Amino acid sequence: MCYSAQIRQDYRKYVKAYGADISIRDFVRLYWERKASAQIKIPKAMDAAFANPQSEDEREIRALIDEFNTQQATKLEQELFKQTKRRADAERTLQTKTTKKAQEDLRISTDKIEWAKGIAAPT
């Protein structure tokens, strides 16, 4: 089992076990900031900690997580469509004439499509 799978980031358990002085509002702010900037990375294990919200703040975090996941799915679908079109165009070009650009477009689009499908695959 990988290290990240072993890490338990459940807020309630953390606070109970260590008496942490971390506010749930800090988590709300973190997820709110991630909504505005995809640069902020939060492990899925942290998201899983809010799967069963028990307070109003936790419900707010759950809503922010769901909204972010929907946005990411939309972006992934758009990228998949763009790369599928790129691959089809490259294949059409290669049927009539072999060009370096078409070969590169075919290679790159195929790689990106495989990556996107791997990300979208359920785990």
Score class of each variant (00 low, 15 high):
42 I>A: 02
42 I>G: 02
90 A>M: 13
68 F>Y: 14
45 A>D: 06
120 A>Y: 06
15 V>I: 14
53 P>F: 03
65 I>N: 07
18 Y>G: 06
10 D>P: 00
12 R>W: 00
58 E>Q: 13
109 S>E: 05
44 K>S: 13
3 Y>L: 14
74 T>Q: 08
6 Q>Y: 14
70 T>V: 10
99 T>W: 02
69 N>H: 10
33 E>V: 12
38 A>E: 11
52 N>I: 08
39 Q>M: 05
122 P>R: 08
17 A>Y: 05
42 I>H: 02
37 S>C: 05
2 C>G: 07
29 R>P: 01
69 N>G: 01
119 I>P: 01
59 R>C: 11
32 W>D: 13
78 Q>H: 02
32 W>R: 15
86 R>H: 10
88 A>L: 15
37 S>N: 13
98 T>M: 01
61 I>V: 12
46 M>G: 00
120 A>V: 05
76 L>H: 02
6 Q>R: 15
89 D>Y: 13
106 L>D: 03
93 T>D: 10
96 T>G: 14
30 L>C: 15
96 T>M: 10
110 T>C: 01
69 N>P: 00
61 I>K: 03
98 T>G: 00
123 T>G: 07
79 E>L: 12
74 T>S: 03
97 K>W: 09
4 S>P: 04
35 K>M: 12
45 A>F: 04
16 K>E: 13
107 R>G: 00
47 D>T: 04
58 E>C: 06
30 L>V: 13
120 A>H: 02
2 C>L: 07
68 F>Q: 10
89 D>W: 10
91 E>F: 11
11 Y>Q: 01
25 R>G: 12
103 Q>I: 04
46 M>K: 04
45 A>M: 07
75 K>P: 00
14 Y>M: 08
75 K>E: 14
94 L>H: 02
85 K>M: 13
94 L>F: 02
109 S>C: 08
57 D>F: 09
34 R>C: 05
3 Y>Q: 11
59 R>L: 09
54 Q>P: 00
21 D>E: 15
70 T>G: 03
20 A>K: 15
13 K>L: 06
70 T>P: 00
86 R>F: 06
21 D>L: 15
33 E>W: 12
62 R>K: 12
16 K>T: 03
114 E>L: 09
14 Y>D: 04
112 K>V: 07
114 E>Y: 03
39 Q>I: 02
121 A>G: 03
10 D>W: 05
5 A>W: 10
85 K>R: 14
52 N>K: 12
9 Q>A: 13
44 K>C: 06
29 R>S: 14
6 Q>W: 12
52 N>M: 09
55 S>Y: 04
105 D>A: 06
99 T>E: 04
88 A>R: 15
90 A>H: 10
100 K>S: 06
63 A>L: 08
52 N>T: 14
78 Q>N: 05
92 R>C: 07
83 Q>T: 01
86 R>N: 14
5 A>V: 08
115 W>C: 01
92 R>L: 12
118 G>R: 03
60 E>Y: 11
71 Q>S: 06
75 K>L: 15
36 A>P: 01
108 I>Y: 08
39 Q>V: 04
73 A>Q: 09
14 Y>G: 09
